[in-house]
Design a protein around this nucleic acid. Sequence first.
DNA 1: TTGAAAGCGCTAACAA
DNA 2: TTGTTAGCGCTTTCAA
Lengths: 326, 326
Amino acid sequence: MKATMKDVASLAGVGVGSVSRVINGVNVKETTKEKVLAAIKELDYTPDEYARGLKTNRTNTVALIIPTIWHPFFSEFAYYLEETLSQRNYKLLICNADGSPEKEKEYIEMVKQSKVDGIIGVTYSDIDKFVSSKIPFVSIDRHFSEPISYVTADNFLGGQIAAQELIKRDCKELAYIGGISPYPNETNNRKEGFFSECRNLNMNVTSLVMPEPIDDLPSQLDKFISENPNIDGIFTINDFMGLDVIKSMERQGKKAPEDYQIIGFDGIRISENKEYLLSTIVQPIEEMARVSVETLLNIVLFQEKSERKVLPVYFKESATTKTLDN
Amino acid sequence: MKATMKDVASLAGVGVGSVSRVINGVNVKETTKEKVLAAIKELDYTPDEYARGLKTNRTNTVALIIPTIWHPFFSEFAYYLEETLSQRNYKLLICNADGSPEKEKEYIEMVKQSKVDGIIGVTYSDIDKFVSSKIPFVSIDRHFSEPISYVTADNFLGGQIAAQELIKRDCKELAYIGGISPYPNETNNRKEGFFSECRNLNMNVTSLVMPEPIDDLPSQLDKFISENPNIDGIFTINDFMGLDVIKSMERQGKKAPEDYQIIGFDGIRISENKEYLLSTIVQPIEEMARVSVETLLNIVLFQEKSERKVLPVYFKESATTKTLDN
DNA sequence: TTGAAAGCGCTAACAA
DNA sequence: TTGTTAGCGCTTTCAA
């Protein structure tokens, strides 16, 4: 049978209060402490988190809601989240919401049930109603109507940088390719930034904007590309879309960076120490994770008000753009 | 303030026992049930999992210990685990152990602390001492000395299949390339299977076996490849190693499948709906996840004895082997 | 079929 | 600095 605090107390010949104090590191005489510690070791005692949580109402657990963990962006994000949380002695629960508002709601309920202390969520569905500003919630890449905390990369800036880099590399015919979600979404600013910068620099842009869920993506890409054969500089809403565009281009016999140049967005890598899949605007995923944890724990622990953090992005050259010599 | 069972009971005009019974679906008169349900809705009540866990000693949570979630094999595995667990109303905690036995131990302790009901672990370090057969633990890809449950793909068979497929495709000079861990490890059977089949078919095999942690992998590969210029069929311990070999080959101006053919192991895909990275022996990751959950919950819920499951693998052709016409 | 009441293992307030 | 004790919100006897 598992040892309880009472067992430790009686073996050590002290009260349960003292045992509790030793464990929580408050005022205890050295000799008492030693006796208790000896008893703890003797009985191989570890405190029951459930009983503790019942009193303190804290679980030291945070839930992450994402569309799917089976995606390098989210798995990298989850990796750094867990690392950061672990340092603060917190645990990480994973929820693959797959765009299901029910499942997102279920996890949000867990805060009320005190199964988790707070939530970090990358959610693209419409769950405003469930996310009241009273629960500790940090959103990634998304504004809610309520004053919810969020952490996001500077998507607008990313779009601007993409335009600059393509133009610097002598692209004459620019294109933007991406999907568009029915829900308000930070990623849309990537397009805005790109267009804005092109306008400033007096460049023309063709675009293919596909409503989500996207139906038969390859055909749509093939069609767009063959209808616009002179395109030589492409910015895609994210790296995965970039990969699809590259494949479509291949089908037309075109290769980057010789025949065209392309920049994605996200900065995805398959795994640590692996390369970027294409030239891309990198989101500072590790920093986003750290800032998310910090923001969330500030709310959980100190009831801080909601905060909004926008983090910088940068261009990372890989194999799909020409190297500038200078 | 959060509503408690007591609040519901007094609003419904019944005792807390009845509320509990309604929630747990046991013998209650219909009229009572209705009153209670109404009160629950009225107060937006949800049971506190902590209090419940304290009594029942169950958390409906399972922990997954892996080296890192930032790896497509593990993130796919975690994806299917979460999906399966979710159907059974269980939650999934993630632990990136990064090969740290301390962190693995910490999570194993969580079973004792009743923070989780059981553990599914892919662990390559030496933690036998902590994993007693008394705690609900399902190991992936690894034998422990104690009679611990495990689920694994048929690595030996995979190695055999790889040999067959390369030979079928007219490879004459075979090679095996992989790392080797100081801890007993299922993945070693991949090599054994490959060698065994080559022996049966009277084929010679060169091999590069590097002790882990591997120091300066690219140089070792370059050296091996330039010293063995006639190799035309390669089997690597896993897909990532395969990718590294492909890069090394590229540095020597060789391209698959024209100049050589290569088969990896794991069946990694970046994300759902994406392609395999190279021709490979596919582990049935989804099924491994389902079987792991089933095995674990049988132990947790029904105290079943440990089970050992070996699941089949299969060859999946992709761009790095020649297509057989028949 | 029910309500009352006894704990589950812990923390924290209180009194000593 | 301590031991004692009252709950935290729930489940589960036990009587009624």
